[in-house]
Design a protein around this nucleic acid. Structure first.
Lengths: 252, 252
DNA sequence: ACGATACATGCAGAAACGTGCAAGAACAGG
DNA sequence: CCTGTTCTTGCACGTTTCTGCATGTATCGT
């Protein structure tokens, strides 16, 4: 059995049954648990699954649950979100990406802020229904389950019809040389399209993203106005990014 | 059962029933009460629940009510939704309207149904993220706060790009002479656009809608394949509608 | 105040984990 | 065709994490 084949099998299993138990899969495929664990580690690194003790779970359920319960984001994300929310100009227009960090931003926006928010995430849109003064514009398209956002040709096309003052983007990897990266090509294209429609683009990156890179390039640093992170401002990676002329907003 | 899975289960239980009794859950899942207690302690540490003697409660009681996705629809709507969900052809394409009745349909769809769902409601889209086999397509546009759906020119235009086997529409008023009506002109236009893209259109109407009319006409009866309602099939209004050649599917 | 129940803590066995290592396959270059 | 390299895979090892039980303590209802 090929490694890629195994990967496919695991993803299929994840989609079909909603979970993976390392031991069971190993027995089913007649391979060692170590191999399964290695595969799961790689998949998790690509953001395709969520590693847990004993196996793995899909990424999306977490996203769904987060919305529903308004659960508190981890400390780092909350701090980043607070700084990002303060950047939004009253009366202005904001393009807000999907993902848990962006969701934290939505929750961090003042309840009575009058602004226009454009998003391709139904989760974000639902969360912002609670803001009476906020104008909401939803970008449609095919919904990608694992990230719960609209992507694909239709979504990119819809994005090209709007423009905004500010774009807040979440990414998977933030690296001085590799730039801003994510695990899915369609998502990368969508984020690129969003960034292109805003006067300024800021990247939301909690510290664990720094110094890592994923498969697909989203943007080069030249297209980015700034980075919002809770990492130590004197961290080598942060210094490296600042050296590229990117404004770094510390969130601590 | 994975530890993380258990956590998910507990959160689900919390949202659905509003409380957790440690002893009951331990018996239900066949694990020790100690494990349940440990899980609850961890969840509470993450701010996801509130620990109380004997079990746990949601962080804020209001959250459960606010979260439309878990709230149980009234009996009539649930019955209508069940009948409507049964109409969806496996492998087919469904256009699903917004609103509470449509949300009930989304919840009534079999968990593993393989079909394509097109909607202009971020709420519906979010609810359907839990269906791993369902393809989701979101129609974008300006979000109308009071109904939480995308409407307006952009949304209508987006609707014109799709087509489907079946369209399930919720309306405000259902009347033999006045036809199908709703309270907002933009919403009426959107519903019209949706219905025009499907081979068949069925109306979802719990009994309290029957015999009433609102300001804006959505569709004349000729454009409608059928009506799904929990009202008495021998009711005068229902008889009147059937006399117009509309198929009436009773939900009782 | 008292019994019953829930709780926290410590402990031990079991399971899962990460790492290093070696055998084998796949592949490139000579 | 051979050889060296790289990658993958399974195994062994020590470590970490989880789980259920036992103990003693705190809390609840009566």
């Amino acid at each position: 059995m090929l490694a890629a084949e195994r990967r496919e099998h695991l993803l299929g299993l994840l989609a079909r049954e909603g979970k993976i138990v390392a031991k069971d899969v190993a027995a089913e495929l007649g391979i060692s648990e170590d191999s399964v664990r290695r595969d799961l580690r790689d998949l998790a690194a690509d953001g395709l699954c969520q590693r847990v003790y004993g196996g793995a779970l899909p990424v999306s359920p977490a996203v769904v649950d987060y919305t529903a319960r308004q659960s508190v984001a981890p400390d780092g994300k909350r701090k980043v979100a607070a700084v990002a929310a303060a950047l939004v100009p009253p009366g202005g227009t904001l393009i807000l990406d999907g993902g848990t960090t962006a969701l934290a931003v939505a929750q961090a926006l003042p309840q009575d802020l009058a602004c226009t928010v454009i998003t391709h995430s139904p989760t974000i849109a639902t969360a912002l229904l609670a803001h009476p003064q906020a104008e909401l514009f939803l970008l449609g398209g095919r919904i990608f389950k694992h990230s719960a956002v609209a992507c694909g040709a239709a979504a990119v096309e819809a994005a090209q019809q709007v423009s905004a003052d500010l774009c807040l983007l979440g990414v998977t990897g933030v690296h001085p040389e590799a730039g801003l990266t994510t695990a899915d090509a369609e998502e990368a294209a969508m984020k690129r399209a969003l960034a292109a429609r805003a006067a300024d683009t800021y990247i939301l990156a909690s510290s664990e993203k720094l110094g890592t890179a994923s498969r697909y390039r989203v943007l080069p640093w030249e297209k980015v106005s700034g980075l919002i992170t809770d990492a130590d401002p004197h961290d080598a990676v942060v210094e490296g990014i600042r050296a590229l002329g990117v404004e770094v907003l510390p969130a601590d």
